[in-house]
């Protein structure tokens, strides 16, 4: 099942998530938008880290996964945040 959610981060940029899930866990995540993220190629690491997460995960749990990758990979975000990505994913699967 494919779910989408788009929103403008207050004071930041636009983010859209496309989440594929099987009703139990996330199979894939695609994150698009007009934000900045460095190094750019590390966005895929964030997307992959969310594969397998339960769709019942809370925003805080998803955020912790993303924040872990951000810290490990030395990612810097401008216009979005781990919290914003987590919110967009949770909102997509909750629709």
């Amino acid at each position: 099942m494919e779910c989408r959610f788009k929103y403008k981060v207050p004071g930041g940029k636009l983010i859209e998530t496309v989440v594929m899930h099987n009703g139990i866990s996330i199979e894939s995540v695609r994150i698009t938008g007009d934000f900045f993220l460095y190094p750019e190629e590390k966005l895929e690491a964030i997307e992959k880290s969310l594969t397998g997460s339960r769709i019942g995960s809370t925003e805080e749990e998803l955020c912790a996964v993303i924040a872990g990758v951000v810290s490990k990979e030395g990612i810097e975000m401008i216009g979005i945040s781990p919290e914003a990505i987590a919110r967009a994913i949770k909102s997509a699967v909750s629709k």
Binding site: E16, I31, T32, G33, D34, F35, L37, E40, L43
Partner: peptide, 9 residues
């Protein structure tokens, strides 16, 4: 388009 945008969208 920006690096993280979708061309089709």
């Amino acid at each position: 388009i920006g690096r993280f945008q979708s061309m089709e969208e």
